[in-house]
Design a protein around this nucleic acid. Sequence first.
DNA 1: CCCCAGGAGACTC
DNA 2: GAGTCTCATGGG
Length: 279
Amino acid sequence: MKISEIGTREVLIDGCDMSLADTFGCGQCFRWEFDGEGWRGVAMGRAVRCVQRENGFIIENTSIEEAKSLWYGYFDLGRDYGAVTDSIGDDEYLSAAAKFGRGIRILRQEPLETIISFIISSNNNIKRIRGIIERFCVLYGKPVNAFGGTFYAFPDYEDLKRVTMEGLTPLRAGFRQKYIMDAAEKINSGELDPDGLCGLSTEEASAELMKIKGIGEKVSDCILLFGFGRYEVFPKDIWIKRVLSDVYGGSFDENAFGENAGIVQQYLYHYARCSGTKK
DNA sequence: CCCCAGGAGACTC
DNA sequence: GAGTCTCATGGG
């Protein structure tokens, strides 16, 4: 894998297994948007645009330094996903799912963003989740000018202090409004420090997360997988439960995949949700 | 009118 | 511990 500057604030990530469409579209993130040619998004306070290339992708509006210090981690570029898919074994359905989702990379998103986003995801659909999150960012996040427009960063810890119950009403988050507020209160007071979870075991971190109302086992698993790089968790949402029941008759053993369980889960989720709707 | 969505909490047994 | 009911909102 090679990182090189190919233009003004334009960096090429060459020689990596990457499908932007599958990575951004597999349900792990909610803010990247396709503009017809590339994917625009804001992460870590920076607005960039990613464009698919044959054997990698381009990141626009960034520097080679940022690519190495920030985007390398965000896109999990140090991991060989091909080796993961090769280690999956001869399970027929899973092999098909891995083939279908080839190029998916698990993003290392920011802890606060994953916490709030997956609280919102509870008993909700992706289109609506995206809308609620976007309204949250416009209301409380900082504006970032790029590509001739204004984008909004996901609110940081300072922004979170301004959150009130009444202020959340425009989100139309329904019963999750009080859960978002509980998360904000616990984080603002210092009762829970998201960044501090990095030093804990996955089990301990999960127990901490579940002190927040609206975070149960499944939401906690998503936060740990997509925000903390805990690849051993296996979030069980409605789609995965269907697969485990309908395809495997309850005999699927996620523990067999050890440190890659989360990646395997993502292949299954994406396949179950999209098979039949993609070319 | 119905059912469903990347579930969780409260309650019952 | 395992089963229900309910929780807002919007789409199909």
